[in-house]
């Protein structure tokens, strides 16, 4: 099995994000960046498949210099090699442009599977997987919560709304988008971190792929970010922890009458 895993570097879960002066993105200086949550599960699934069936796991990210860290982390966990598409303007690329870049990279490679996360926690579009599959003319299945590899095909369990599922079979090569919870992602071991230093990180840029900026010009862009308006009037309860507890018990029993 040769498996490619797409990993996006995003602001860590629980980050307090502030809109930047331009009003079009968030202030990045104080943010901690990590691998997107579902991508982490995708990497683990690839590593498990490799352990069971042999082969190679290649991780692939596109982002500014800081994004190098997510491929390093993946190599430390056991991925074999990495492709780092370094591009400082990457935030301006839309899903179609990203799909085009990854398609160019992957057309040069042979693979059985491409795994991505089901959606990026920052922009939340949930588009790149199916778009890339289309560009590479591959079958795809989204929101995968279980995988099985009988001969020549992949069988997956796909999550649907409200606790429903279905099994889906797809021919290989295929692209899957992975849902969180499919496995328990590992941490890098010390040995893994040492081994990472000897692994290949192939760095490529737009020029290497022969893509011009015009070919990738975004068809959609963010013009403004803002804090959402509140739907309900929230009564905030303040004070010391003890005071808050007392007041809360009081409003819940006397005002809301729910206890």
């Amino acid at each position: 099995m040769k498996i490619f895993v797409l990993i996006k570097q995003v602001a860590a879960q629980g980050s307090v994000v502030k809109i930047d002066g331009d009003g079009r993105w968030v202030e990045e200086t104080n943010l901690v960046f990590t691998a997107n949550e579902s991508d982490n599960y995708a990497l683990e699934e690839a590593l498990l498949m490799k352990e069971a069936h042999g082969g190679e796991v290649v991780v692939c990210t596109l982002g500014p210099e800081r994004a190098r860290q997510v491929v390093k982390d993946a190599l430390a966990k056991g991925a074999d090699r990495a492709i780092f598409f370094r591009d400082d303007q990457f935030a301006d690329l839309d899903s179609n442009a990203l799909g085009e870049v990854f398609a160019r990279i992957l057309r040069e490679e042979e693979f059985d599977l491409i795994l991505s996360g089901l959606q990026a926690d920052d922009t939340g579009e949930a588009e790149l997987g199916p778009i890339l599959a289309q560009k590479l003319n591959l079958p795809h299945v989204t929101m995968v919560v279980e995988t099985e590899l009988p001969d020549g095909v992949i069988k997956v369990k796909q999550e649907l709304e409200g606790g429903w599922f279905r099994f889906v079979e797809a021919d290989l090569p295929a692209l899957l988008t992975i849902q969180s919870g499919i496995n328990q992602p590992r941490y890098a071991s010390l040995k893994g971190i040492m081994a990472m230093k000897k692994k290949e990180i192939r760095e490529i840029t737009m020029a290497d792929l022969g893509i011009t900026a015009a070919e990738l010009s975004a068809m959609q862009s963010i013009t403004r970010l803002y804090i959402p308006e509140k739907i309900k009037e929230t009564t905030f309860i303040e004070g010391s922890a003890e005071e808050i507890a007392t007041k809360l018990v009081d409003v819940l029993s006397n005002e809301a009458k729910v206890i």
């Binding site: 994000v17 963010i222 970010l225 959402p228």
Partner: peptide, 30 residues
């Protein structure tokens, strides 16, 4: 282009789609 998971739109004077980013912490005009 596909603008996914929108919560609204406005016309100002061009057509602007509104969607959430950062898991609902921020809204974006697209």
């Amino acid at each position: 282009p596909m603008v996914s998971d929108c919560i609204g739109y406005h016309i100002d004077p061009e057509l602007i789609w509104v969607r959430q980013v950062f898991q609902g912490k921020i809204n974006a005009d697209v």
